[in-house]
Amino acid sequence: MKFTLDNIDGHLVGIAELEGRLDASNSKPLQKIMPEWLEKTPFLVFDCSRLDFIDSSGLGAIVGCLRKAIDNKGDLRLSELNGKVAMVFELTKATRLFSIFTNRGEAVASFAAGADPGSAK
């Protein structure tokens, strides 16, 4: 999981790239590393362009991350869900919990002061 920081309009936004599969066997590392990221910034973007598969425990882990981000007065936004991953999000109604963007740039920009997070697609 690659993690980079980006500065947008005074906000520090953390971008994590999720890769491969996120399921019961490999969602632990994400939960473990989340507090480290939150120490840097509570404004996070998960770039899912290289995430191929997610199951319900993977989904649970991401929802857990969202909760922690909100607890830290931040937010977790998602970008570039591929067809399969998007379908699982829609099936489980997780799309309603997240702001989801079609590309990483938009997701990061949405944290800019004054940007309306509701404009998510």
């Binding site: 199951d55 319900s56 425990s57 399969k84 699982v88």
Partner: peptide
């Protein structure tokens, strides 16, 4: 098409 691995879904 996604093949679900969670039987509860």
């Amino acid at each position: 098409a996604v093949t679900m691995e969670d039987p509860h879904l």
